[in-house]
Design a protein around this nucleic acid. Structure first.
Lengths: 141, 141
DNA sequence: TATTAATCCCATTAAATTACTATGAAATAA
DNA sequence: TTATTTCATAGTAATTTAATGGGATTAATA
């Protein structure tokens, strides 16, 4: 039941882009340095964000990335689902899952559904803007 | 963010013992047949439940397992934590985790903590007795 | 136009985890 | 004493994770 580095790093990349937005492109190298993670690995992760249209890239010298929409727009859930896949705690709850033969006899699927709902509720409620706000509170205290 | 078969099977084993309790020992072979999972694999899982004192074993012919306490006593959370380990979505929230250097600067740990709380709330609220009850409702409908 | 700095793309890999499988010893009822 | 069961430990194939590496492409700039 762990979120992988891929998902966690993706959230941190998006937040980094939001926090350091000065109207210019931000390079992977900068993000990697600030977040202290492998540049090459971040490259892969941000490529997923790029293909999904969450960030826009500029190639060549002085290139880099920026968020396409406002920080209010992106929820942690969107980012995690994109990078981690479904957040369902069991495969049979995934959208488009081939239905399990025990489904109607299954006494446990109910808990997993509740768990799934609880997880979704949390991650879909928090946006990048919320995380930015929290940071400000941290700095003040 | 998946619960492994180990954790899921453990819940099913415990529930199977609760549902099929007739005052006698229940053999792994029976449970494996009912739940349609590998006997040998279940043996390993139930051994964890045994060592934790959740079930009691009787060795030899006519041996088997039974729940130590009432189904009301066991929450899904207890069983999952025992078999899966901590349900924390990130390692730094685990009890006894060596603290991350970025902890105080970390803008994301807040969401993970909320997620952790939400997960714990669900799994700690549901007991085996609740699952037994749900099953009855399923059969009636 | 040449250089430099960046993204883009694809392949590889070491380590860990998952989900078993196998073997055989030890205990106990009949 | 035999059949049946748990107990303990080791092995293993497949998958996933978390990267690393090499090189092609693009674009600003000197």
């Amino acid at each position: 039941m762990k979120i992988s580095t891929k998902g966690r790093y993706a959230v941190r990349v998006m937040l980094d882009l939001a926090l350091n937005d000065k109207g210019e492109c931000i390079k992977v190298k900068e993000i990697a340095a600030r977040q202290d993670v492998s540049e090459k690995y971040l490259e892969q992760i941000i490529s997923v964000l790029n293909k999904a249209g969450y960030v826009r890239s500029a190639r060549g010298a002085q290139g880099g990335y920026r968020l396409v929409k406002e920080p209010e727009y992106y929820t942690v859930g969107m980012i995690l689902r994109l990078t981690e896949g479904s957040l369902a705690p069991v495969a049979c709850l995934e959208e488009g899952a081939d239905l399990c033969g025990r489904m109607d006899a299954c006494e446990t699927v109910g808990v997993w559904r509740e768990l799934y709902d609880a997880i979704n509720k949390v991650v879909d409620t928090v946006t990048l803007a919320d995380l930015m706000e929290r940071r400000k509170e941290q700095v003040l205290s």
